[in-house]
């Protein structure tokens, strides 16, 4: 218990340290760009394919339920709202945590285990500024874009199943969706959510890597902890954010 508190305190201090030393990651933007490549571009395939399938499943299930009430035309609303508000940010963040977060932890943990971080300090290079902050910002930049892509692919998947395959009327699919989905209420809130999730995942990933025991087991344990902790944190934060954003008004 005490060690948990200890870790939480260290993590908070680490979070502030990232902000203090993130000047380098913007002055030498190439460093951050490299991390956007590794965490963002490399996650493209998994995000887009799973977005497509989640949307297709939503299309099938939604149609099955809605047609019982004779309102299959509302399929567009169902698919768009559930993706933009919830599934897009949350599922994309969960995938991002397991695809990119674990990689970041393993990388930093291994750097620590092979004493590369200490070597940097010996050369008066701050490892937080040089290694940690660019990875953090790379994740924070990538996450909202990935979530938006997930939602867009999902809506396309819902369209494929609903309109092309089942034959829901195309006009009402899109027009009802446009009439109901509000830009500020739904889309911007979804983007804010994915941004918060990006901060959470990146923070947990770099912290677990930095805090890893410098052994083989230590790194593997840290990688596991990254996925578990950030997934739980995403779901908990999602509840809090949803409660703040959509109070049924």
């Amino acid at each position: 218990m005490t060690s948990r508190l200890w870790q939480l305190g260290f993590a908070s201090r680490f979070f502030i340290a990232i902000f203090l030393y993130s000047g380098t990651s913007f002055r030498r933007f190439q460093l951050t760009l490299r991390e956007v490549f590794f965490s963002g571009v490399m996650s493209l395939i998994i995000i887009m394919v799973s977005g497509l399938f989640v949307g297709m499943v939503l299309g099938l299930q939604g149609y099955d339920t809605l047609q019982r009430y004779g309102s299959a035309e509302a399929l567009g609303i169902l698919v768009a709202l559930s993706l933009v508000r919830e599934l897009g940010p949350v599922v994309a963040a969960l995938l991002f945590a397991s695809r990119a977060g674990s990689a970041i932890t393993a990388e930093i943990g291994l750097m620590k285990a092979t004493e590369q971080l200490s070597a940097m300090e010996m050369m008066a290079v701050n490892p937080i500024a040089r290694v940690v902050a660019p990875r953090f910002w790379g994740g924070v930049i990538s996450m909202p874009l990935l979530a938006a892509l997930f939602s867009a692919m999902g809506i396309f998947g819902g369209y494929l199943v609903g309109v092309v395959l089942i034959g829901v009327d195309e006009g009402s699919f899109w027009s009802q969706m446009q009439a109901t989905v509000d830009f500020r209420e739904d889309i911007v809130n979804g983007i804010i959510k994915s941004f918060v999730f990006g901060v959470i995942v990146s923070w947990v990933a770099v912290f677990e890597g930095y805090d890893a025991e410098p052994t083989a087991e230590g790194v593997s344990g840290a990688t596991t902890r990254t996925v578990v902790t950030s997934s739980l944190a995403i779901l908990a934060a999602d509840f809090v954010l949803t409660a703040l954003m959509f109070r049924g008004v």
């Binding site: 963002g40 892509l149 939602s151």
Partner: peptide, 17 residues
């Protein structure tokens, strides 16, 4: 990556929203 990410946001804003 950034271009298609922004395109997705634009799609959500104009076509979905």
């Amino acid at each position: 990556f950034v271009a298609i990410g922004l395109a997705a946001v634009l799609f959500l804003a104009l076509k979905v929203g």
